[in-house]
């Protein structure tokens, strides 16, 4: 009986030892614990992914507001000799500055448990016809971290943003730039006024008569200017009419173009030479006089350009009555350009 008791005791000891060893090796509970933890992490990942999508939507909307503000601010600035190249550089810089105001704090989605770190951006604006393509890139991603006891999860999403904005005034900015308007004036002079002209007098009844330079110009232009001052005035007026005519040509589809020509000066240069063949005292009785002139045209002025897009208004920050407000405003564009034409 005593021996049997030792065997039973040894058996019980063995069971106890086995229990201790199994427990120490985590064989019994380990698998169930691992599975539960995985499920918790995956539930968090789902909300984290939504938070990253929410952050991207937040920044895409911020980019739209930033672009409206950049175009509004740049449109109002006093500037000269503007063209799409300068506009592109200025809008890129301003949009970038505006956009990065939205990234100073992290983005919160649903609760403080889901906060997404927002990166700093660089913005490049490219113009194509009347559309502004804005691409915002960052060297960093959107990042969200979730830390629980014994668990840590990090998710990232590419932070690249893109926005295509139809900005109707854009289609006129190059046309109304200094280069664009100088070309319009040059083409107009080329079409309207000749560079060379000649006047001839034939017959002995015209003997001793000579043509004045202005008469040569009058014959070419089919006008009757008394002097060059009058011709210069007419020439400048014709250019102003041509430029002002652009207002009605370009104003369409809710776009209004206002132009004001200022400080206009200019004149018509004339360089003439003549030939005379007088044979009235001879048997032939002929007289021939020819005067040939070369004309040069020059004009300088400033033009104030205002393009209003009356079709739609955008929410922007404005300074009015000494305070800053958020208001819906049209995106106008104002510029003063220098016009300087010498033809030919």
């Amino acid at each position: 009986m005593k021996g049997q008791a030792e065997v039973i005791l040894a058996f019980l000891l063995t069971i106890v030892m086995a229990w201790i060893m199994l427990t120490s090796l985590n064989v019994i509970w380990d698998s169930g614990f691992t599975i539960n933890r995985k499920i918790n992490i995956q539930q968090d990942l789902y909300a984290m992914e939504n938070a990253l999508d929410g952050a991207k939507l937040y920044m895409e909307t911020a980019l739209q507001y930033s672009t409206y503000q950049a175009l509004f601010d740049y449109g109002k600035e006093e500037k000269s000799d503007d063209n799409t190249g300068k506009l592109s550089a200025a809008v890129s810089e301003k949009t970038g500055q505006n956009l990065n105001r939205y990234t100073t704090d992290s983005y919160t989605f649903l609760s403080q448990n889901y906060k997404v770190a927002l990166p700093k951006y660089e913005v490049v604006a490219v113009f194509n016809n009347n559309t502004l393509n804005i691409v915002s890139t960052s060297s960093n991603n959107f990042v969200i971290n979730r830390v629980n006891i014994n668990e840590k999860a990090t998710l990232e999403k590419n932070a690249r943003l893109e926005f295509n904005f139809v900005y109707p005034p854009l289609q006129y900015i190059d046309i109304l730039s200094s280069d664009g308007l100088n070309k319009i004036i040059t083409d107009f002079i080329n079409k309207t006024w000749n560079v060379t002209a000649a006047k001839t007098l034939e017959g002995c009844e015209n003997r001793n008569k000579e043509a004045e330079d202005i008469e040569v110009f009058n014959e070419m232009s089919k006008q009757s200017f008394k002097d060059w001052a009058e011709a210069d005035k007419h020439f400048l007026n014709s250019i102003e009419s041509e430029i002002m005519g652009l207002q009605s040509t370009l104003s369409k589809n809710n776009i209004t173009v206002n132009l004001k020509l200022q400080n206009q000066t200019g004149h018509i240069d004339h360089l003439c030479k003549f030939t005379k063949d007088d044979k009235c005292d001879q048997a032939q009785k002929t007289y021939s006089y020819a005067k040939t002139c070369t004309f040069g045209y020059s004009q300088t002025s400033n033009i104030k350009i205002q393009i209003n897009d009356g079709g739609k208004q955008y929410p922007v920050k404005v300074s009015e009555d000494g305070s800053e407000k958020i208001l819906f405003k049209p995106l106008s564009f104002i510029s003063t350009n220098n016009l300087n034409v010498k033809y030919p």
Binding site: Y65, Y102, K317, I326
Partner: peptide, 14 residues
């Protein structure tokens, strides 16, 4: 629940 919404002028609300 609160979700951040961007506002014109460079700020945000929820």
């Amino acid at each position: 629940s609160l979700i951040d919404i961007p506002l014109p002028g460079g700020t945000k609300t929820a």
